[in-house]
Design a binder for these strands. Structure first.
Length: 297
DNA sequence: GTCCAGGGTATAT
DNA sequence: ATATACCATGGA
């Protein structure tokens, strides 16, 4: 039905296929399904589950509501979610000008033009994902996230498929670490996740509160004061959730591997070298990182 | 068996 | 400030 469809307009230098390619990187991703060129997921709006799909459209992104209707609030909230998810508010012109003159970025930017830093709009989901991803392979992190979501999240059935609402921080706040240990999440990470769930559920840690601090360094300082959040996790959250175009997860092994490849090194760069490489990218280090990651696929 | 994977904490110098 | 042990699982 025509009323179940809305268009989200996209800016110049946006490529749906490039974002789709990033979203498609794991078969174990549990927060959305991809079939062909269409991404479908669930989202909670005012306590009610909405299921929607996104596909490319000449006018932007076509959003089809599978469950729930785009009338009133749901349509606006889903549109806002997508703009947040795909960083549609950003003008990439300065980044592309910078990258064209940079030997390390040029190739990635030419090959993936239109790619956005794909976000994780929910703060709790961001920290769970980042903490799970510390020190283990991305593929194993996906397995752990899937177990976490399918054990503690809320299923939404639509068209014979199951979609998931990410576990509620308030519920996780009350868990015993052993409940997470059973999923093969380490004891430490289980404690970190439960502590952060409590902070979020109590309103002590909020996305808007962090964004109000404005300055990346200030936000990093606030975040790294929390147990389980070090510089890598803080910058990862700045990049994926708080939309800092300049956050730089300098300890990231994937970034090291990408730099090794792009710079033709015979070993991975050290941490100081990784910082030094990024000097010319100041203002856009998150975008530089995201594009460099694409070299590894 | 060893090493490494989208790190972080605790402790010792 | 910098170095090391430890966390803990799974794939190469």
């Amino acid at each position: 039905m025509e009323t179940d469809r809305v268009i989200v307009h996209t800016p110049p230098d946006f490529s749906f296929p490039e974002c789709l390619a990033y979203l498609s990187r794991s078969a174990d991703e549990c927060m959305f399904h991809i079939e062909g060129e269409t991404v479908t997921r669930a989202l909670e709006v005012d306590g009610q589950p909405v299921v929607f799909s996104m596909s490319e459209d000449p006018d932007g992104i076509s959003v089809e509501f599978k469950q729930g209707r785009p009338d009133g609030k749901a349509g606006e909230e889903v549109s806002a979610f997508i703009r947040d998810w795909l960083d549609l508010g950003r003008d990439l012109t300065p980044f592309y000008e910078l990258a064209e003159g940079d030997p390390l970025l040029r190739q990635a930017v030419r090959e993936h033009r239109g790619l956005r830093v794909v976000g994780i709009p929910d703060l709790f989901e961001t920290f769970v994902w980042a903490i799970l991803g510390q020190q283990i392979t991305v593929s194993f992190a996906y397995v752990l996230k899937k177990r976490f979501v399918e054990t503690f999240g809320t299923p939404v059935e639509s068209d014979g498929q199951t979609f998931w609402i990410f576990p509620d921080a308030g519920a996780v706040a009350g868990f015993d670490p052993d409940a997470l240990r059973e999923l093969k999440i380490t004891g430490r990470k289980s404690e970190y996740i439960i502590d952060i769930a409590r902070m979020i559920a109590d309103g002590e840690l909020t996305k808007t509160g962090l964004l109000e601090l404005k300055d990346d360094k200030l936000i990093e300082k606030e975040l790294t004061a929390i147990r389980g959040i070090g510089p890598w996790t803080a910058n990862y959250a700045l990049m994926r959730c708080l939309h800092s175009p300049d956050a730089y997860p300098a300890a990231d092994v994937g970034l090291h591997n990408a730099l090794k490849l792009a710079a033709g090194l015979d070993r991975k760069p050290t941490l100081p070298e990784t910082e030094a490489f990024a000097e010319p990218w100041k203002g856009w280090r998150a975008y530089a990182t995201f594009y460099l990651w694409r070299l590894l696929h």
